[in-house]
Design a protein around this nucleic acid. Sequence first.
DNA 1: TAATTTCCCATGCTAACCCATGGCATCCCA
DNA 2: TGGGATGCCATGGGTTAGCATGGGAAATTA
Lengths: 161, 161
Amino acid sequence: MTHFLGTHQNRLDAKGRVSVPAPFRAALKARGEANGNANGNAGHLVLRPSHQHQCIEAWPAEEFEALSQPLNQLNLFSPEHDDLAATLYADAFPIEADKEGRVVLPDTLVAYAGLTDTVVFMGLGRIFQIWEPAAADRRRAEARERAKVKGFTLPGGAPAQ
Amino acid sequence: MTHFLGTHQNRLDAKGRVSVPAPFRAALKARGEANGNANGNAGHLVLRPSHQHQCIEAWPAEEFEALSQPLNQLNLFSPEHDDLAATLYADAFPIEADKEGRVVLPDTLVAYAGLTDTVVFMGLGRIFQIWEPAAADRRRAEARERAKVKGFTLPGGAPAQ
DNA sequence: TAATTTCCCATGCTAACCCATGGCATCCCA
DNA sequence: TGGGATGCCATGGGTTAGCATGGGAAATTA
């Protein structure tokens, strides 16, 4: 699988570590290898606070790299570059999993997402998010509701539902 | 990692020294080696006061070098060349880290950025900045706000709202 | 010679690395 | 079809190495 699918629950231990769900690990590894990173590791992640929600966004390195593209078009001295770079990069944490496939979640992100001892990994295709369990439930219910109201259509002709 | 990511806090000691955060050191070293500087050192920095904010801008030597390119196109005796050169170079300090990875911040820059005993390193991708902690917080909040107002959308992956 | 600055060595702490264990699901074999 | 065995996955904890920081000695400048 090359996408992050499904929802997984894991425990956050006393050291702030949490196991990345095995399916997500596999997806990360596949991505890394596809991009020629022959090194055995899982291809690292970039964690950021989400703009829209109180949760942590996890970007595979390659995906995050794509964010630099629009930035590179801008003049390094322009205020636009400054704002974007500060927003994208200053709050970002490059994270690497240990041999067991665990990552340490930075304190500030744990606080931002309101995490306690159990966290939820929510797959969103090209990226995934890390939530406090109850907030994750609310979020999914809300997303379903919005999608239903809007009649949920996919670009490219995929049939609704 | 070839980019400066995240925000790090370190102490400015009585001698005006401060440790460059380890991840930034690694990024600097990687840059230096990528450009054929086979010497083991971290590849030096150029510090200058930021135009737009009360903070210190830190440029990797190679990145700063790239700024010379447009200058070289200009007539050496033109007013444009004079102004640009004065702006870019006159207030710049070439800085080299010691064996422990620390740098001494020039007095004028410390004063300009209003630094006291604790400083914040803010990663901005290709460069980084050095801030007084409270000012750094304000700056990040401001950047988020301005980016949001501009309709800043993440390419792909990010969920619609 | 006095005052700074630069180099070098020393130390506490934190975080990454490594090894070990328990539980759950799957597979195999009777 | 049921019971046992096996392997992966999540989790816990001890140890070590790297990092940030402090202070002293040598070198440089005024």
